[in-house]
Structure formats: C-alpha cells, structure tokens
Nucleic acid binder design. Structure first.
Lengths: 223, 223
DNA sequence: ACCTGAACACCGTTCAAGT
DNA sequence: ACCTGAACACCGTTCAAGT
C-alpha cells in the first residue's frame, strides 16, 4: 500500500494505529504491518526489537497527544479536572488501543510528564508523597478503563451492524426477569445506548475529582 | 495431568483459571488446556463453541465468587462501600484474569446480580435511572482496572525475579531528571513498591464512594 | 454422544544469507 | 545498514472420520 523506499519507525506506528482503529488491536500484527508496507515481516525487526516494543511505541504515541494545560491560579482540583479532561480527549479517538497505556504510563516520556503533573497537583491538594502516588496511579487507570469500556468502544465500525449489536444488548437486558432484576430492566435503554457520551465522561471525571478532593486520605482512614 | 474419563466444562474452567494464575492469561490456550486434560484440542469444542466462550465462562467464575452483602440499615453509601469491597475481594486473588469481566459484567448471572445491586443502591442514593446506569458501569470498570494494574499483578511469580523487577522499576524512576520530574523522583519508592496493598485498595474504594456521594449528578452539572 | 487426525490459515521469532 | 527466505514452534478452527 504505502510503499516507500525506506522503512521508518514513525510510519510503522502510524499505520499500526490506523490498523487498530479500523480493525481492532488484534489486527495489529507484525505480518500485517509488513504487508501494508510492502516488506517482509523480518524487516520490522530492524526497527523494533519485538512486538512489545511496537505496542510500547503505540502507547507512547497516544499519550503524546495529551495537551497538558498550563498551570494557572485555579484551585488544584479544578486544574486536575482539566488535566483529566485532556487525558481523556487524547484517548477517546482510539478506544481500541486505550488499553495499552494501562500498564505503560510510566514507560514513556509523555506518560511521565502527565504523571508528574498529577502528582504535583495532588501535592498542592495536601497529599503526602505516598498518598499521591497511590491516588495518581488509580485515577489514571480508571480513566483508561473508562475509554476501554466506554460508549466509543466495543462495537462494530459499520453503523448498521453497530445498531444491530446495540439493539441486541438492550433486548437482552430488557428480557431479564423484572422480579430479580428490576433496576437492570428499567435501565436497559440507558445501559445499551449512551444518550450523551460527553456527559458520561464529564460525570465520571467529576466523580473522580470529587473523590480526590473529599475522600479521607490516610491509610487506615475511616469513612 | 488430571486425566479423567469424561471431559467436563467446570473442570476445564478450573484448570484454565489455575493456568492463568500461574502463567498469565496468554497461557490459557485451547491446545494447552487439552494437553492438561490428556485430550485432543478438538475435544474442547464439544463443551465450548469457541475460545470466547471459554473466556466468558472464566469471567463468570470470577464474578460468582463475589459475596454480595445482605441489604441492611446502613446508609446507601456505606452499603456501596461494602459491596465494592466484596467485588474487589473476589477479583484480587486472580489479577491475571481480572480484565475479563471488564467487558463481560452484564453477560453472566453473577455479574448481573452485582450490577443490579449497584443500581439499587444508587437509586436509594437519589440517582435517576440514567445517572445510575452511567455511574454503575464506570465504577465497576474502575474496580476491574484497579486489580488489573494493582500491586497484585504484573510481576513474576518467582519472588526473586519479582524483587529484581521492582528494583529495576524504582531505579528507572529514581534516575529521572529531578528538575523535570521532581515529584516522580520523590515518589519512586512509593510508585514501585506498594507499602500496604490493603490500604491502597481501601483508599481507592473510599475515593469512589466519596465521588458517588458528593459529585454533582446531572448531565452538564458544573463543579 | 464424544473424541480423534489431518489440515488450513494464521501468529512471533531465530538464523543464515543476500545486497 | 537494511532487507530477504526458509524454518520453527506455536495459535484457533474446520471437516471428515472413528467408536
């Protein structure tokens, strides 16, 4: 397809990301990437030591898209809100690969920069180093999980099939025993279709920030 | 190994779980499961339609271990706290497979029962059906992500190798530029080693419950 | 009904060569 | 330095057969 004389690591990651967006992460294969670049699978090993390194580079590419807001005079928790917003905004276009940063935030420069900023804001919020470390990791993981399972992901690209899948999901929930699962049956529609994706993500971030601000912080704190 | 005359779905899932606990989810392979039961790979297709069905059954097995607390007179948010505790307690022994329920909570009876109870408590907390649906999915996903990335997971079983990996992780963070990453360098120890795993999980749940209790609930709510 | 054998279309990766 | 070819040890899955 995109045949060019020289194979290039950046271009490989670019097409890997496109492939994942189109067909899912399982389609990102050394052999398929090679084929897409008109080259032998072995040629990729000149640029990456193994597949794990490709996935790491893919994760870094995602995290590099985060537009970290400049520090300002707002209270720390509002700045945290904006930072988490920026994190989500970078991942949302690529739900199929959102899982990669889950275990790789601290393994690339862009991820480190984000984590550093989260720790800084938590310190401003009165967190000790240990409390901040735990809270930071948990919050970033929760954000990733949000995108992985969120309304952007998990369904076919083709809008017709996608619609069919959503209808089936709703039907499955609506058909449950209303005696055993009254709340699930009542929420079938809301659980299957997501009326307002932006509101879903905004609400999740609001809960996370509220938790960071209001929850007891010490180990062994009681509620 | 465990040779018996009749192949049995429950036994297959039991050994699949043991295999995942020992060697990670990628070791759970139709061929290896068959080998472990002294049988041809094809024999498994009598009991499961395909590998996805095996993973689904594995997810259900995990969720079935959740000891859902009986409803009582405590305020809804305290009961939520105990429910999330029970969810975590079931997943924590099996970090390698914790990712499976991420997309399968609503696909098995035990998962449905948990989700129903979460929705019920949120309704008691004044959530509308739509708000509860969104919050419930987000909170359960966050819990799964917690276990997937938590201090229980991601490192070798062998305590010697595990120690080496943790040391390397800490060294990597401690060696960062203290000018660019002062907070990460200061937190290197806390990020690599987790002093108190129970406190880590307890703090995370406390933040989630605080968020559910205190965050604004409406779509478009301002902080 | 339950299991087997052979085969197919895939993987990631190693090693020795080519230019 | 960069790419190729052949091979190895794996995958999940289909199809036709065995008992």
């Amino acid at each position: 397809m995109a045949t060019q004389k020289r194979l290039n690591a950046d271009d490989l990651i670019t097409s890997a990301l496109a492939l994942a967006d189109d067909e899912g992460l399982e389609a990102v294969t050394i052999r398929r990437l090679a084929q897409h670049h008109g080259v032998t699978p072995m040629a990729l090993y000149r640029h990456f030591h193994d597949k794990e390194e490709i996935l790491g580079a893919l994760s870094e590419r995602l995290l590099a898209d985060i537009a970290i807001p400049e520090p300002n005079d707002e209270p720390w928790h509002r700045q945290m809100h904006d930072l988490l917003d920026a994190f989500l905004a970078a991942l949302r276009p690529h739900p199929a690969v959102a899982q990669l940063p889950l275990t790789r935030v601290l393994a690339s420069q862009p991820g480190l920069t984000v984590a550093e900023r989260v720790l800084e804001l938590l310190a401003q919020g009165g967190y000790t180093v240990e409390q901040a470390a735990e809270a930071a990791m948990q919050i970033l993981c929760s954000l990733v999980a949000l995108v992985m399972t969120g309304p952007d992901h998990g369904f076919d690209q083709d809008p017709e099939k996608r619609d069919e899948q959503l209808r089936a999901k709703k039907a499955h929930l609506a058909a449950l025993s209303p005696r055993r699962y009254p709340n699930l049956v009542a929420a079938a529609d809301a659980l299957a279709y997501c009326a307002d994706k932006d509101a879903y993500y905004a609400g999740s971030i609001a809960r996370m920030v509220a938790g960071l601000r209001d929850a007891p912080r010490g180990p062994g704190a009681s509620s």
